[in-house]
Amino acid sequence: MVKVRNLYKRFGKFEVLKGINLELQKGKVTAILGPNGSGKTTLIKSILGLVIPTSGDIYVKGINVRKNWDYRKFIGYMPQLAVFPENLTVKELINMLSDIRKEGYNPNIKEEIIERFKLSDYMEKKIKNLSGGTKQKVSALITFMFDPEIYFLDEPTVGLDPVSSSFLKDLIKKQSERNRLVVLTSHIMSEVEEVADEIVFLLEGSIYITGSVEEIIKNSGEKNLERAIAKLMEKSYNA
């Protein structure tokens, strides 16, 4: 569904991505991991069209994304820190975005998320008066209510209480069961182990390892993903 071919990105003399080749398949949750500076944010933003690669190609549903923005209608993006117009109420924001992006809008999904996140009491409140956790819930609502085929979720559970976090993780897993593609980043390895099917681990702009969560844990000889990833990073530092 998403193919990356020989992707390079330089910022001045600094080479951030070094020939990335990757295929992301629908029906799976793929976690893109790596230490700070590994290139994971640049890779994701390149796929989203927010960063223009130096060379290489990206295809979404067979569409070469270079100079073609139509593919974005297939994608829901939940940034780590969403920025919304502060003077709007939650209800006004939802209505505005529903008017702009009509395609895929699913009122049933919207109502379910509002109910489970207990957002009804916040509909008339302005964005600027919301807590960080409530803003995160609004961001999730906006991402999922358009029922996209592809999700990019950057640290999706940051700031959420345990009940809301559990619901969101269930919602993420549900999308893969519905044959959607979900790509996420998270620094919480227990969360990644819980929801992800595949891991793409980047290091210094290259793919260091890929595989299923089970394979990576088994091959590391460790008992969980957090320790497996720690061993990977330790090996890289000692190389």
Score class of each variant (00 low, 15 high):
Asp121Arg: 15
Val163Ile: 12
Glu198Ile: 11
Glu198Leu: 09
Lys223Glu: 15
Asn129Ser: 13
Tyr71Leu: 04
Arg10Leu: 10
Leu168Tyr: 01
Asn6Thr: 05
Leu141Arg: 07
Gly132Cys: 09
Pro35Tyr: 11
Phe117Cys: 00
Gly37His: 00
Lys110Gly: 02
Ser166Arg: 07
Gly104Thr: 09
Met1Leu: 00
Ser164Pro: 06
Ala31Leu: 07
Ser206Pro: 04
Val2Pro: 08
Lys173Arg: 11
Ser38Met: 03
Leu33Pro: 00
Ala239Cys: 08
Thr185Ser: 07
Ile47Tyr: 08
Glu194His: 11
Lys128Pro: 01
Val16Lys: 01
Gly205Val: 02
Ser38Val: 02
Phe74Asp: 13
Glu191Ser: 01
Met189Ile: 09
Glu204Lys: 13
Lys174Glu: 06
Pro35Gly: 13
Lys18Gly: 07
Asn238Trp: 09
Val29Trp: 01
Tyr208Ile: 00
Glu204Phe: 02
Lys28His: 12
Asn129Ile: 05
Glu193Tyr: 02
Ser120Leu: 02
Val138Glu: 04
Ile150Val: 15
Lys126Leu: 08
Thr41Gln: 01
Leu97Met: 14
Gly37Pro: 01
Pro162Ala: 07
Ile216Leu: 15
Ile217Thr: 04
Leu97Phe: 11
Phe84His: 10
Leu203Asn: 12
Phe152Val: 15
Glu86Asn: 12
Leu48Arg: 01
Leu24Arg: 01
Thr89Met: 09
Phe167Gly: 13
Lys45Val: 10
Met78Gln: 14
Asn6Pro: 00
Ser206Glu: 13
Phe146Pro: 04
Lys102Ala: 14
Thr30Val: 15
Thr134Asp: 09
Asp154Ile: 05
Val90Glu: 09
Val200Asn: 07
Tyr59Leu: 08
Asn95Glu: 15
Lys169Asp: 14
Val83Ile: 10
Leu181Glu: 03
Met189Pro: 04
Ile217Glu: 02
Ile188Asp: 15
Ile216Cys: 11
Met78Asn: 07
Leu48Glu: 06
Tyr237Pro: 08
Met189His: 10
Asp147Ser: 13
Asn95Ser: 15
Ile100Leu: 06
Lys28Gln: 12
Thr54Met: 03
Ser55Met: 07
Val4Met: 12
